[in-house]
Nucleic acid binder design. Structure first.
Length: 570
DNA sequence: TGCGGCTATTG
DNA sequence: CACAATAGCCGCAG
């Protein structure tokens, strides 16, 4: 056996900035490093060996990234656990329980601060309890007591890694599950980088935009309230008399009665409904304008700017690589729902450009791939596959698009319903794939995406508490499950793409991931090269995500542009 | 204080 | 206005 780490081998890593680092290779090689030597040695190993670093969760990745180490390959146990077990909950205790075949609902409770728990300290050096669960004290932080504990923690991580590999390769009909685990781990590492790097913001421009909605920055809370009252008045002045006292525009019930006073009756006061009533009374227009200003004031105003944009003019939020139903990336701080009006404030730094690229019609292309429908796959060969589908169905492009989207969302009414029957006849395999998923989900059966992520239906039924009755809840589960198979696989494709871009575009940084869109920040001189890399990465992602057979049959496209300002996109 | 309802924004 | 998400404010229950 060699006394060196081997290229590409799994090396479990436990890190603590005060204690140091412990490394355990899958062939038995170990290394213990004090706090001063840890970062340089890890950086050196990354260069000379390039292992697949195995760690428990994102904080370890974040520690490396903060030390300016950005590994090429990793394995994030929490992230892989979420693929295997579904949902969002993870952590060493659950990772370990799953690997040991223990019931996660009997997970031992986290240690409390009460005095009586001190009795447990007797066996604090033993990470595995007699019942097989991981010790809560270890999970809570005993693992970072010293280098010996760190070493043990890394060993346990390596055990968990082996169990996860075994579990992934044992999944029936999911040959890409291990590849999914690697790209999803890379995405989690990317999340740590996104959190550190942030998104470049032109703060002066952002303040100009905000001011255009709600005026200049108020000096104090009193002025802020005064400004809000002034905005309220612009709506309330449309009412006759002085009886506008006590009307709260933020209260939908009050808004309804306000509208009733001018002779307008509505079930709810959503903007799209009021939009059609603009001509009825000038107060509608005033109210809709008030809503936009209120939105900026409360969610995307000066407070948002101060809270989430650093002194270095970077917008930062918390990133998750697989939150929610089917494993899409999520972000806080408005990074995923920034209003279009604020996008002119997202500007590359001096001497830099953005490479902005989005995957075209990703979900129907994904449907063609995961279902194996040859007719739908043929349509993906065109850059605008909806046009091809429209020709096949004998309908307009708009109707074809609505029908395909409706099929993936589970729509049963409206204009898409008629075209849906033609979809069934033309793309029976794809449609059957969707109805099978919907049927399984309605019955409360768990699903697994193409890449192997478990979509739990047992837990999902309770999410839709607003829908009354068992039948509508089952139907909601069906729509949820049907869509999760497509949206989830699309998320896996996107993260594979992002991971390839991250690996190939070493001199640039991904600064935003937006479901089907990437924003890369690069020095101006290398913009063209990076744009080529981003575009070419789509084809590499297709092969990595699906294997050569599917990648040859289904075509994926990206629209890539170089720009200085996000809003310069077409 | 926590939670569901309503509303807004985005893909 | 179907699928997904974050986030604010309001009313209401505890």
């Amino acid at each position: 056996m060699s006394d060196e780490f081997q290229p590409g081998e799994a090396v479990a890593l436990a890190l603590d900035s005060a204690v140091g680092a412990a490394l355990v290779g899958e062939h038995g090689q170990t290394l213990a490093l004090g706090p001063d030597r840890a970062a340089p040695m890890i950086a050196d190993l990354e260069r000379s060996v390039g292992p697949r670093w195995v760690w428990w969760s994102k904080p370890t990745a974040a520690t490396l990234v903060a030390a300016d180490i950005r590994p090429a390959r990793c394995w994030d146990l929490d992230t892989v656990h979420r693929i295997l077990a579904g949902g969002w909950r993870a952590g060493p205790g659950r990772v370990w329980a799953l690997g040991s075949g223990l019931d996660p609902s009997d997970l031992p409770a986290a240690p409390t601060d009460d005095l009586f728990s001190a009795a447990d300290t007797a066996d604090s050096d033993e990470p595995i309890r007699s019942d097989g669960y991981l010790s809560p004290m270890w999970i809570d932080g005993a693992w970072r007591a010293d280098l010996d504990h760190l070493h043990r923690w890394a060993e346990l991580g390596l055990d968990a890694y082996r169990w996860q590999i075994e579990a992934l390769t044992g999944l029936d009909d999911r040959p890409h599950a291990a590849a999914t685990a690697r790209s999803e781990s890379a995405a989690e590492l990317l999340c740590a980088e996104l959190e550190l790097d942030g998104l470049p913001v032109d703060v002066a421009e952002a303040e100009r935009i905000i001011a255009s909605f709600i005026g200049p920055r108020p000096a104090d809370a009193a002025e802020e309230r005064h400004r809000a009252a002034e905005r309220d008045h612009l709506v309330l002045e449309h009412l006759d008399g002085a009886s506008d006292q006590g009307i709260d525009l933020r209260n939908p019930g009050n808004v309804k009665s306000l509208l009733r006073r001018v002779g307008i009756e509505v079930d709810d006061t959503r903007a799209w409904r009021l939009e059609r009533l603009r001509g009825e009374h000038p107060i509608i227009d005033a109210l809709l304008r008030w809503r936009r200003a209120e939105r900026i004031a409360t969610t995307f105003g000066y407070r948002w700017l101060d809270q989430h944009v650093g002194v270095d003019h970077r917008l930062r939020g918390t990133w998750s690589s697989s939150d929610g139903a089917a494993g899409r990336m999520t972000a806080t701080a408005g990074l995923h729902n920034l209003p279009a009006e604020l996008r002119p404030a997202i500007v590359a730094e001096p001497g830099h450009v953005f490479i902005r690229a989005d995957l075209g019609q990703i979900e129907p292309r994904i449907l063609a791939a995961v279902s194996g429908d040859a007719a739908l796959a043929a349509a993906t060969q065109e850059s605008d596959m909806y046009a091809t589908v429209a020709t096949e169905l004998g309908v307009t492009r708009d109707i074809a698009k609505v029908a395909v989207l409706g099929a993936m969302y589970g729509q049963t009414t409206g204009h898409g319903a008629a075209a849906l029957r033609r979809l069934d006849a033309t793309y029976p395999i794809a449609m059957r794939y969707l109805t099978d998923a919907a049927h399984d989900a309605e019955g409360g059966h768990d699903l697994r995406t193409r890449g192997g992520r478990l979509v739990r239906m047992s837990a999902a039924g309770d999410l839709n508490g607003d829908e009354r009755g068992a039948r509508s809840r089952a139907a909601a589960r069906g729509r949820y499950g049907r869509n999760a198979m497509v949206q989830g696989a699309a998320a896996e494709f996107f993260k594979t793409w992002a991971a390839v871009v991250r690996a190939r575009a070493a001199d640039a940084n991904i600064v935003l991931c937006l479901h089907d869109e990437l924003l890369v920040h690069a020095r101006h001189e290398i913009g063209d090269d990076m744009a080529s890399i981003v575009t070419d990465a789509v084809q590499e992602a297709a092969y990595r995500w699906s294997g050569s057979d599917t990648a040859d049959a289904v075509h994926f496209v990206a629209d890539t542009t170089i720009l200085r300002r996000w809003s310069d996109a077409k």
